[in-house]
Amino acid sequence: MAEFDTTTEVVVAAEKVRDAGFTETDAFSPFPIHEMDEALGIKRTVLPYLVFIGGVAGLLIGLGLQYYTHVVEYPIIVGGRPHFSLPAFVPPAYEMTILLASFTAVFGMLFLNGLPKPYHPVFNVPRFNLASREKFFLLIKKDDPKFDYDETKAFMEDLNPQEVFDVDE
């Protein structure tokens, strides 16, 4: 793992790591860096599709609940409206759509990120607590097919980092 001072340095280094053919990599930063997605070759997440499915499910559950209530289980005439009074059913169905889509967005994000995960080997690096403050870190994992301890370490030293650390497991 290598430490950097600025966004520009870490992004440039990440591009070099990608171009050298490493795939099992990660970067850590105190705030999102948009350029990093491209620099590390991160694929676009499937999250938006999940959120869409969540929203559609919410809509169907909302409408289904009201249909079941007013047409099947407890048909009762209120104000001369038909049993299935769609315009009046829009607000609850709409709110259910938003609710389920939002839940999917948040919990889907946490699930895809593999969180909660209170312990992770990177936390063993003493200086890593600066990743949530001001420093930027670049990691090459040892299960990368191109990983070789000495070569990779030498390669990382060449990236002009502040320092290179080993991550204990």
């Binding site: 990440a14 990660d26 970067a27 850590f28 930063s29 105190p30 705030f31 999102p32 860096i33 990093m36 997605d37 590390l40 991160i42 997440t45 999250l47 938006p48 967005a105 948040v106 889907g108 994000m109 946490l110 895809l112 990120n113 969180l115 909660p116 995960k117 209170p118 312990y119 992770h120 990177v122 936390f123 890593f128 990743a131 949530s132």
Partner: peptide
């Protein structure tokens, strides 16, 4: 904090979410 570590992959999904 659910073990948040500022990983680039996490930030990517986080920002989208």
């Amino acid at each position: 904090s659910w073990g948040w570590r500022g990983s680039a992959r996490h930030w990517h999904r986080y920002e989208l979410a």
